[in-house]
Design a protein around this nucleic acid. Structure first.
Length: 566
DNA sequence: GCGTGACCGAGCTGACTGAT
DNA sequence: ATCAGTCAGCTCGGTCACGC
């Protein structure tokens, strides 16, 4: 392991050496145990002491692999897939069959040397053959391989045959992943190229906008104190209590095509205590700021719900305190997280990623079928590590559970994220951080209805309500993998699974057609137009008409193999 | 008359609880 | 076991009263 570490490999080169990374490493260090954890902790401590990490070829630096987030044999704990590989014969986990690790390895090997894939595919396996036959679905090949793996894990299977079958399966998976790997490299290249040089509003000559940034608690407290001092001055001058609040209505939003996100313009309005229409809102704003000051002074965090319950009589409904909270963030010029107020956990992540949450190491391959709840304190998350090739963004929990239970990420190295519907702030921040740190492409799996597209737009371009923080909440260039209206015919979705669009759906879809983020992508526009003309929608679950595992065993592999994303 | 803000309703997702 | 209601996280649009 040390020899590999000192070989002077660039961080990116770790991928080319995946077989050894996921195979040999696994045999030597099958589980992510305390030993490897303490190894890592030691290395971390060394880094924090300022000493050069002994095993790393070079310290994490700008460019290349960013912070060295790619798992390498020398510094990354083995993923369960590889762990299962090492445990062949004993555990022989059905969830993480041995070939999974090699599959990932093969995907990299194939990408590195495409010619090698053709040679490896020559092995005579029904699974491989199925994968090679255009008429056979990838899922069939995978299913076949899966069965063979199960057989192979038994004592009767000859070792040679088992190896051949495993090899053929890895080749099949590698072929599926070929396009994704290419895209991942492209994304990595682009993100590295634009790192630190991304176009800014200033560079574009757009100055009349309201943008917020992370601020430390003392700065936020000072800002609140200044606001109160100004308010007191105003009262003493006889001008009454009032606040200048940025106008967050639709009329004050601006879509910036160069950045592909919505920003808040600089228009403000006066919220005055001597107006009958605004007196409550002004009182609520004052009270909320007082509470925020308390929270910040004690250096604790609170939830939106907690804040509401602190003065139910005044707020009446949580909507009122929630809205004011965003106003206060706007006025102060900080993110909502900087106010130390968070929403309850909503999003979930599972798959091939590890990170530290407030010092604790989280391994998302070991979170069962439910996944790891995305914590609201995104600022406490650090040290992303992954060997995934892409991030799969899923609209619904049902589809997420299917993917998690089938351990989709073991066969096709990926990170699966869902916000269970409309995304909350934490999930959006997590996705952005994950994408930026790991430099991975993001593929969206949403319903074939206008709301699915709208949810994608919130991830990509931001929402109007939170446009003041779109700089940190949006993730550009998400690809729409499915379910798309054109898929309904392509995959022969049965009639009973196609739902007629309601008048409200059609109205919503027509409004979406006018949205900038749809108009700038002709393929998305065409799909939405087709949906509106057919007046038919479908949910991800429609794919279950062919079986509950159709999604993971056929649909997604085929989509990936055919590079069918737009 | 126009713009703005408050309020309501509708949509997406899910979890949980109590009644049937 | 199922269903309805409530709650929680989001989104947006329409209507109406009010102020300029």
């Amino acid at each position: 392991r040390r020899a590999a570490a000192h070989s002077g490999r660039t961080p990116g080169a770790g991928r080319q050496n995946l077989p050894s990374r996921l195979g040999l490493r696994a045999m030597m260090d099958p589980l992510f145990d305390d030993a490897s954890s303490s190894d890592e902790a030691e290395a971390q401590a060394a880094r924090s002491r300022g000493s050069k990490r002994p095993r790393a070829p070079k310290p994490a630096a700008a460019g290349g692999r960013g912070d060295g987030k790619r798992m390498r044999p020398t510094d990354a704990p083995a993923l369960p897939a590889s762990g299962a590989a090492s445990a062949a014969g004993s555990a022989a986990s059905a969830h993480a069959p041995p070939p999974a690790a090699a599959a990932a390895a093969a995907s990299a090997a194939t990408a590195t040397a495409p010619s090698s894939s053709s040679s490896s595919s020559s092995s005579s396996s029904s699974a491989a053959a199925a994968a090679l036959t255009p008429s056979a679905s990838v899922g069939e090949a995978e299913a076949g391989a899966g069965q063979l793996t199960m057989k192979g894990s038994g004592p009767a299977a000859p070792a040679g045959r088992e190896m051949a079958l495993a090899k053929s399966q890895t080749a099949a998976v590698a072929r599926v992943m070929q396009g994704v790997v290419a895209m991942r490299r492209q994304v990595e290249k682009e993100l590295s190229a634009t790192s630190g040089r991304a176009p800014t509003l200033e560079a574009l000559g757009i100055t009349n906008v309201t943008e917020v940034r992370e601020r430390d608690p003392s700065a936020v407290m000072r800002a609140i104190e200044e606001l109160f001092a100004d308010a007191a001055d105003s009262i003493l001058r006889g001008q009454g209590l009032h606040f200048e609040v940025p106008n967050r209505t639709a009329a004050n939003q601006l879509y910036v095509p160069e950045l592909d996100r919505i920003v808040l313009k600089s228009k403000t309005s006066t919220r005055s205590f001597d107006s009958t229409a605004q007196v409550r809102k002004t009182a609520i704003m004052t009270r909320v700021m007082e509470m925020l000051h308390q929270v910040l002074r004690r250096n604790i965090h609170t939830t939106k719900r907690d804040l509401f319950y602190a003065d139910v009589k005044l707020f009446r409904s949580q909507d009122e305190s929630d809205a004011v909270l965003d106003d206060v963030a706007c006025v102060i010029g900080c993110t909502r997280t900087s106010l130390h107020v968070v929403a309850s956990e909503k999003g979930v992540v599972v798959g091939r990623v590890q990170f530290r949450e407030d010092g604790d190491l989280i391994d998302c391959t070991r979170m069962g079928v439910g996944g790891k709840a995305i914590p609201p304190f995104i600022d406490k998350i650090s040290d992303f590590r992954s060997d995934a090739e892409f991030i799969l963004l899923v609209e619904k929990d049902a589809a997420f559970m299917r993917l998690a239970e089938d351990r989709f990420y073991n066969k096709y190295p990926c990170i699966i994220i869902t916000a269970k519907g409309q995304p909350d702030v934490a999930t959006r921040l997590f996705l952005r951080k994950c994408r930026d740190d790991l430099k991975l492409p993001v593929l969206g799996l949403v319903d074939a209805d206008p709301y699915g597209l709208k949810i994608l737009s919130v991830y990509m371009s931001g929402s109007k309500t939170m446009s003041y923080d779109s700089a940190s909440l949006t993730t550009s260039d998400i690809k729409w993998l499915g379910v798309r209206p054109s898929d309904l015919d392509k995959y022969n979705i049965p009639e009973q699974c196609r739902l007629p669009m309601k008048p409200s759906d059609i109205k919503y879809g027509k409004a979406l057609l006018e949205e900038d983020f749809v108009r700038r992508n002709p393929k998305w526009y065409a799909e939405l137009e087709a949906m509106l003309s057919s007046k038919v929608k479908a949910e991800i679950q429609a794919l279950s008409s062919y079986g509950f595992q159709y999604l993971t065993e056929t649909y997604l592999p085929r989509k990936l193999k055919e590079r069918d994303w737009i």
